[in-house]
Amino acid sequence: MPIRAVVFDFGGVLFDWNPEYLYRKLIPDETERRFFLSQVCNGAWNIQQDGGRSFADGEAALIAEYPQYAEHIRAWLVRWPETLAGLLPEGVALMEKLEAAGIPLYGLTNWSAETWPYAWNNYPLLQRFGEIVVSGHEKLVKPDPAIYALMQSRIARHLPDITPAELVFIDDSHINAEGARRVGWHGIHHVDARHTEAQLRELGLEF
């Protein structure tokens, strides 16, 4: 079946987000910084905020365990904009090629509801997507099948007869791309824009 819509992840595809950008300033020692980002404010902790937990609760849990890092833990939210270096030009160029070809574009992101407003207010590019599902708003995170089903239902507002096989999802996480495949979508593990573009063309998209 032809692809009728493309769904983008944001971090690592269109946005250059990395907590290292902030914590290089706060923790100059590489060994200590590696410990902090792998054992304290790590991916498992952050995904809970992406899933709807408040930063107040997330911070309290960590500070109780690592009181010596209280200031650095609070900085994750307070100085969050410093973890976002801006847009990734090659990813944006790919998005704009698809947009120019009239291919409907949607967004599906694991992103905290508390930090999302900063991105929405500062990056007008986001307002060009037909629908965006933000995990923190929905209290669901990729690769839960329920979040892909929710995304498809939002797309169906615009394309009422859309089927899973007509959707392709681009994500820099192999696990999340595979999650899309498990629900019948096409999933592309984004490594760079050139390879992603080639895979989209292999799927029959013309742009």
Rank of each mutant, 00 (worst) to 15 (best):
F8K: 01
D9F: 00
G11I: 01
V13G: 00
V13N: 00
Y21H: 10
Y23E: 06
L26K: 14
L26I: 08
P28N: 12
T31R: 14
E32M: 10
V40P: 10
V40R: 00
A44L: 14
Q48L: 14
G51M: 14
G58N: 06
E59R: 13
E59A: 07
A60Y: 06
A61I: 14
L62A: 08
I63A: 02
E71W: 12
A75E: 05
L77G: 05
V78N: 12
R79A: 08
P81D: 03
E82V: 09
G86E: 03
L88F: 04
M95I: 01
L98D: 09
L98N: 07
L98W: 02
E99M: 10
A100D: 10
A100H: 09
A101W: 13
P104A: 09
L105I: 05
Y106L: 05
T109K: 03
N110Q: 11
S112D: 04
A113R: 15
T115Y: 00
W116Q: 13
Y118S: 11
Y118D: 07
N121G: 10
L125I: 15
L126Y: 04
R128N: 08
F129W: 05
G130A: 10
V133Q: 04
V134Q: 00
V134E: 01
S135Q: 03
G136D: 04
H137G: 03
H137P: 06
P143Q: 03
I147L: 11
Y148D: 02
L150T: 05
M151D: 02
S153N: 15
R154F: 05
A156D: 08
H158L: 12
L159S: 02
P164I: 13
I175T: 14
I175G: 08
I175N: 14
A177M: 09
A177F: 03
A177V: 07
G179E: 07
R182H: 13
G184C: 13
W185R: 02
H189V: 08
V191M: 10
D192R: 10
D192F: 03
R194D: 14
T196Y: 01
T196R: 01
A198C: 09
A198D: 14
Q199S: 13
L200A: 07
L200E: 03
L205C: 10
